[in-house]
Design a protein around this nucleic acid. Structure first.
Length: 270
DNA sequence: ACAGTAACCTGTTTGC
DNA sequence: TGCAAACAGGTTACTG
């Protein structure tokens, strides 16, 4: 999916178009997403004004008058602002209808999901156990180091765990580890605090730079107006198997780790 | 608590 | 060229 930078890009993109506006209708073309779209959602949403648009981890939070709409883009989802009357295409699953405008949820693989809660969204089952936001002050080297104590899981899988830190997916985990010179398979509990200092700084850096570039578009992701993100050209290792390492020239390696592709330099990362 | 795996889906790429 | 297998940015739920 959309990892954190793509969700943040989407959040910033849709915010000015829908904040303060009222949802006049909900059209569900496809109810079966990762979880079914709630049967009562249309009744809950009709007439609701969007008070604010925010993000927690990879969840978009659309705060309304009497509840919060929670949207996750899954692996292939995107949200687009289109004019009323633009016909839905294949894989356009749900339309949030406003006067003159539609917020359209597009998701070929249907791993995304849509939820509605009348309580604090941060206490929702899916958000309750998330780790700190990577840009927050709570996300420090000491925090990671302590959580990693005696853990044998690979550092890559560790930083991709949503309960450890929110929003770091496969692309940015690979990139941050490369910038930090840490081998993706190294056990999380066998990394010095000083190396965690580097890693935390690089996670913040790579995510921040990607947000500035409008995210990474490899295949499905596009912004609210349909443009791609431009961070793909700045990737050092991800999707670059066999290409020379930008630091030492050794060919970038690919190994499958926890069912996910891991790209790294065998000479620079230990 | 932790580690590992299957599962949710469809489209595209890879390999025979 | 054709067809089937493998793979794709996420996360939960289940197993041992």
């Amino acid at each position: 999916m959309p990892e954190l930078p793509e969700v943040e890009t989407t959040c910033r993109g849709i915010r000015p178009h829908i904040t303060g506006r009222r949802i006049t209708d909900l059209i569900v073309h496809q109810r079966q997403l990762r979880w079914p779209v709630p049967a009562q959602l249309k009744r809950s949403l009709k007439g609701q004004r969007i008070d604010s648009v925010g993000r927690r981890a990879k969840y978009l939070l659309l705060e309304c008058e009497s509840g919060c709409l929670i949207v996750h883009l899954g692996m292939s989802g995107s949200l687009h602002i289109v004019a009323s009357g633009v016909p839905a295409q294949k894989h356009d699953q749900v339309d949030f209808v406003f006067t003159n405008t539609v917020l359209r949820f597009h998701d070929p693989r249907r791993f995304g999901s849509i939820h509605w809660t009348r309580r604090d969204p941060l206490r929702h089952k899916l958000l309750r156990n998330l780790g700190p936001e990577p840009f927050s002050e709570a996300f420090t080297a000491r925090y990671l180091y302590d959580r990693a104590a005696s853990r044998k899981v690979s550092i890559k899988n560790f930083i991709m765990s949503s309960g450890i830190v929110a929003g770091v997916g496969n692309i940015y985990a690979s990139e941050a580890l490369f910038l930090s010179g840490i081998h993706p398979q190294r056990a999380a509990g066998r990394i010095a605090l000083s190396r965690y200092e580097k890693l935390v700084a690089n996670i913040k850096h790579v995510l921040g730079t990607a947000i500035d570039a409008g995210g990474t578009t490899l295949r499905d992701f596009t912004r609210e107006d349909g443009r791609p993100g431009y961070f793909a050209q700045k990737l050092n290792v991800y999707n670059r198997r066999g290409e020379p390492c930008p630091v030492c020239g050794h060919p970038i390696l690919l190994r499958t780790l926890g069912q996910r592709s891991s790209f790294y330099c065998g000479r620079c990362q230990h």
